[in-house]
Design a protein around this nucleic acid. Structure first.
Lengths: 249, 249
DNA sequence: GCCTTTATAGTCAAGGTGACTCTTAAAGGG
DNA sequence: CCCTTTAAGAGTCACCTTGACTATAAAGGC
C-alpha cells in the first residue's frame, strides 16, 4: 500500500527507488520596519509560471545542507549582506507547504522561514530586477504560487510572537529608543499603543531591554531626546504583552 | 552556484533534473492522557538501522497527497481507527526536520505532526509488535533517528498551546468533567493546579466549555459527582491560562 | 457514623492593566 | 525670542485578574 519508509515498522526491505522524488526548497518571509510601515523582501519573477509577479525569495536545499542552512544562505544572497551579519539575524522556521499542486511544473515541498531584520540599506543593486526589493506589506498584487498564504501565515506568527517573546528587538538596530520599539509593535499589529503604559510594561519585564549608559540622547527628530537601550538577554516575556483586542492563531 | 528554483528570480531555464531528489516523510507525535499519565504512540523497529528501538509512527508522503493528508492517513493506519474518527482528531503540523544526516541511508526530509487524542482503546492487535502501542512519556530508551528531539519539541509545543488555546479539550472524550480537564493540564505540565482557581478561570472564558444539561453527575469514582461539559466553539483563550512558573520556547 | 475524597462556592490581599494627567526637553516658525 | 508642536517620561487611579486560602456539599469506604 505504501512505499518502504525510514523509521517505520514495515517489514518490507528498504528500496531507495520505491518512493517518489520531491524537490525541497526554502521560501523566506523577511520583514522589516521602514518609515513606520511594515515591509517585505520580494523578488520579481522573470520566467513562467507567474512571470512578472512578485514572489518570496528562496531556493533549493542543496544536497549537504539542512533547510535552515539553505534559508540562511539564501537570505545572505538576496540581501547582499555578509555571512557574519546574516548569522546574527533572527531566522525561524515557519512551517512546510506541501500541496501537490502548489507548483504547476512538478512536486515541490517548501519549508518556509520567517526572518526579522532592522531597517537595512537597500539590497545590492537597489531597484535592479535582479535582486530582492523591500515593498510595503500588502502593496503588491497577488504573489506567485502560494506565497500569499505563506506571507499571511508569517505575518500572523510574527504578530503573535511579539506578544510573548522579546522578538521585537530583532527589528531594531543594536541601540534603540523605547519609541522605536513601540513603533515595531504598532506597525506589526496595526494599532496605536499608549506610550506610558508601553514603557511601564517593557521596563517591568526583566531582561527585555537594558539601558545604555552614555548620554541619554539620540536626536534628529523632534521632541525630548530619548534614552537608549540594548536588547536584553531574556527571550520570553512574563507577563506577555498582549495586543489590545487580541486574537491568536 | 545553485540549481534552478521554482519561485525564484533566476534567469536560468527550468530543468527538473538539476536538483537533488529527496524523500519526504511524515512523523507523528501522538499524545494521550491515560491513567493520569501522558502517553505517546510508538512503534518498534523491525529492521536496521535502530532495529529494536522505539520510533515515532509515520511514513512516506505519496505522490498525490499533501503532508497533512499523509499524516492523517498514517494516523488512521497506526491507530486502527476509522477515517471518519481520525478526521475529527486534532492534528497539527509541528515543524520540519531536515538535517542531511538524520537518516544514515539517504536524504530524508520529515514533516513532523502533533496529534492529541482522548484515551482510545488499545490500537488494533494491542501488544502486537506489528502495531503501534501507547507508552508513558519518557518510559523508553533513546528513540530511533532524531525522534527524541521531535518528541521533545512536540511536548514543549503542546504545553505552550495549552496556555493560550482550548486545545486541552482534544484530550478529553466528548463529555467530560472539569476535573478531567484539569487532569490534562496537570499531566502535560507536570504540576498541580488549584481546583477552585482552575474552575474559575475555565468558566470565565467564554466558549471554552459549555455545560451539558442532563443529570449533573458521572460517578464511578469517589467524591461529589461532577457536572459534565462539552467543548465550546472557542479556539483561543483570553486571557491565557499560564502555567505556574511558566516558560515558553 | 466517621473519615476520606472530590466538587463547588466564596473571600481577600497583591499586583497588573488601561485610561489619563502632568512635566520636561527638544525642534521649528514667526 | 517666544510660542507652538512633538515626543519622552513620571505619576495617578479605578478595575480586574490572580494566587492562596477557607468553607460547604455530596459521594464511597470502613
Amino acid at each position: 500500500m505504501t512505499a518502504p519508509r525510514p523509521g517505520a515498522r514495515r517489514p518490507d526491505g528498504y528500496d531507495p527507488h520505491a518512493f517518489e522524488p520531491f524537490a525541497v526548497t526554502v521560501d523566506l518571509a523577511v520583514f522589516t520596519v521602514r518609515d513606520e510601515r511594515l515591509h517585505v523582501l520580494l523578488v520579481r519573477r522573470g520566467q513562467e509560471p507567474y512571470r512578472g509577479a512578485w514572489a518570496l525569495p528562496g531556493g533549493f536545499v542543496l544536497p549537504r545542507e539542512s533547510a535552515g542552512q539553505a534559508a540562511r544562505r539564501e537570505l545572505a544572497e538576496e540581501t547582499g549582506l555578509s555571512g557574519t551579519t546574516v548569522a546574527r539575524l533572527h531566522l525561524e522556521q515557519l512551517r512546510t507547504y506541501s500541496d501537490p499542486d502548489r507548483d504547476p511544473r512538478m512536486r515541490v515541498v517548501s519549508v518556509a522561514y520567517t526572518a526579522l531584520v532592522p531597517d537595512l540599506p537597500e539590497p545590492r543593486g537597489g531597484g535592479d530586477a535582479e535582486h530582492a526589493q523591500w515593498l510595503p506589506y500588502g502593496s503588491y498584487g497577488p504573489l506567485a504560487f502560494d506565497h500569499d498564504t505563506i506571507l499571511a501565515d508569517a505575518h500572523e506568527r510574527v504578530g503573535a510572537k511579539l506578544e510573548y517573546t522579546c522578538l521585537a528587538t530583532a527589528f531594531c538596530p543594536p541601540e534603540f529608543t523605547l519609541g522605536e520599539l513601540r513603533q515595531v509593535y504598532e506597525t506589526v499589529w496595526g494599532v496605536e499603543l499608549d506610550r506610558p503604559n508601553f514603557r511601564r510594561k517593557v521596563l517591568a519585564t526583566p531582561g527585555f531591554v537594558q539601558a545604555v549608559e552614555g548620554p541619554p540622547r539620540l536626536t534628529g527628530g523632534r521632541g525630548k531626546p530619548a534614552a537608549l537601550y540594548r536588547a536584553g538577554q531574556a527571550t520570553a516575556l512574563h507577563p506577555p504583552l498582549l495586543r489590545p483586542e487580541g486574537r491568536q492563531e
